[in-house]
Design a binder for these strands. Structure first.
Ligand code: SF4
Ligand code: SF4
Lengths: 159, 159
DNA sequence: CAAACCTGGATAAGTTCTGTCCAGGTTACG
DNA sequence: CGTAACCTGGACAGAACTTATCCAGGTTTG
């Protein structure tokens, strides 16, 4: 029950891209993003590749290329970022142990449909997902004191 | 974002104990529980030890000892079982990367309080926990076709 | 064509999960 | 009392996943 560290990185990257794109939408090289948060560049690249594959970011090849958000930050949710980085698999993976051991000879018809455990786990996870889906990158960015994004823009312009 | 397999085992063990204790409350040896679901006995023991430490089950030492539920199944929730087995740590572990890199020289006062990301993650996880806390072992047991618990009792009595 | 940038795959190190084992301790029962 | 059934905790492999690095392409600018 541990979320990968890449989620935090990816979320920050999205927010940062949103700030930097206030005016124009020139792409930002992944190496610069890594440097901005002092992260291992090659690994961060792997994570943003996942974002790109998920359609959250767009990549531009070639000189002066880089990354930019593929859609407005208001249409990107934390849920999108989490699923992009972590994969969409459910946290609770049922292995159907009820069919083993003492119940091995029981007819399959006794086990049609998911049992209560699996169902409850799925519902709980849905509640979690719904909550994450209600938070957009734009909302997170707006909740930050304005000096931070301002300095971020300055940091990226001089260089 | 993956839940340990032990959670499924532990949940089944709790339900099974509840069924077997319909009348009396004689403890059940862990080895028998493992056999009932065809699980590796030594490892299952590890998981139920976690249940015992969390006060969900009680263990009885000595000959004819074993495990029993420490309180009525209606007062044991899925949340209890999950935290017992998985530990109470939060899924999203913030590493405060916002303080690194370009913001390294920013005064600590700019970062007081958790940021939006950490807050949203915490809220989502709370929603998940609340949902799990609303499901009791008794409710799960009741939702199973009655032939299954009946056979379970038979399976454990002859032997 | 060179330099800056991305992509994907291979690979290694580190950590967690899964599973086993053993040396104690406790109780029932003959 | 001694043995057998049962639990506990810790130590220890092996598998699996996470984290991190590297390299051989491909694309675009100038
Ligand atoms: S009873 Fe439920 S949790 Fe258990 S194995 Fe079957 S589906 Fe999975
Ligand atoms: S900004 Fe939020 S998510 Fe990022 S490091 Fe700080 S507290 Fe963690």
């Amino acid at each position: 029950m541990k979320m990968s560290e890449g989620v935090e990185w990816a979320a920050h990257v999205c927010i940062l891209l949103h700030w930097l794109q206030a005016d124009d939408a020139t792409p930002v090289p992944a190496a610069r993003l890594a440097e901005a948060y002092d992260l291992p560049a090659p690994y961060l690249v792997k994570q943003v590749q996942a974002l790109t594959r998920a359609g959250i970011t767009e990549s531009v090849s070639g000189v002066r290329g880089g990354l930019r958000l593929a859609r407005p930050a208001g249409e990107i949710t934390l849920m999108d970022v989490v699923t992009a980085v972590e994969g969409g698999a459910e946290a609770f993976a049922c292995t159907e142990i009820r069919k083993q051991g003492m119940n091995a000879e029981r007819p399959a018809s006794d086990f049609r449909g998911p049992c209560g455990i699996a169902h409850a786990m799925r519902q709980a996870e849905l509640a979690w997902r719904r909550h994450l889906a209600s938070v957009t990158i734009a909302a997170l960015a707006d909740a930050t004191p304005s000096s931070v994004p301002h300095d971020a823009r300055r940091h990226f312009s001089r260089a």
